[in-house]
């Protein structure tokens, strides 16, 4: 077995429930902690868990899941570079919790309960229930990031989460190469646009 195949095998060995928990924890880190290095690291981890969820969709083509993970990591890299540029422009990195932490905890708990109940009550066509929870959870994080933040980087992560949720859902319906490829292009473009806007904010 090649190292690549071993790695893929190990990744697909992680259960969907574990991956969903991973998604939740990494999303919570991005939502609660205002420190960019940690946030990018959490996003990095989040893409790994998204990749695990994709292994359930692309059962016969695990390399597609790997591609999704790599694209996500590329976007993380672009975001990291932008944040570095922003930091050299004057913003010093330091760990602190979000200013409205109680509100964020409450909103995350409420939305997670809603996501869980929605995944139990409504069945997404062609999507298994545990995968549906991951899908809905990603959409919930997207709404929270877009709604609660003004920072281009975090709002951008919300947009990327929304795209990941759509990608998971749509790939389960139509796992064709063309749609997958186009969604990858959209992801890359969004990642680049967010990185650019993060820097543009500083320049002005």
């Amino acid at each position: 077995m090649t190292p690549f195949a071993v790695w893929l095998d190990r990744i697909s060995g992680v259960t969907t429930t574990t991956a969903v928990w991973g998604l939740f924890l990494s999303g919570a880190v991005i939502y609660f902690i205002v420190e960019w290095r940690l946030r990018v690291l959490a996003l990095f981890a989040q893409y790994l868990f998204i990749g695990v969820l994709f292994t359930r969709v692309f059962v016969d083509r695990p390399e597609m899941s790997l591609l999704k993970v790599l694209v996500g990591w590329l976007v993380c890299g672009a975001l990291f570079l932008s944040v570095r540029i922003r930091q050299t422009a004057g913003e010093r990195p330091h760990f602190h919790w979000a200013a409205d932490l109680p509100f964020r905890i409450l909103s995350l708990v409420m939305m997670t309960v809603v996501a869980y109940l929605a995944s139990q009550r409504y069945t997404l066509p062609f999507v298994p229930q545990d995968l549906a929870l991951g899908c809905i959870l990603l959409a919930v994080f997207a709404l929270l990031f877009i709604g609660a933040e003004e920072d281009a980087g975090v709002v951008g992560v919300g947009v990327l989460n929304l795209l990941a949720a759509l990608d998971l859902f749509y790939s389960a319906q139509d796992p064709g190469l063309v749609v997958t490829g186009m969604l990858i292009m959209v992801n890359l473009l969004v990642g680049l646009a967010i990185s650019y806007l993060t820097v543009a904010e500083v320049r002005t």
Partner: peptide, 25 residues
Amino acid sequence: GAAKGGLRYLVYTVLALPGLMVTQL
């Protein structure tokens, strides 16, 4: 100028995408 306009446009455009794709399904 502030980059708020571009960010909002990006967010709203991507928000519209799931609806368009699911509609076709």
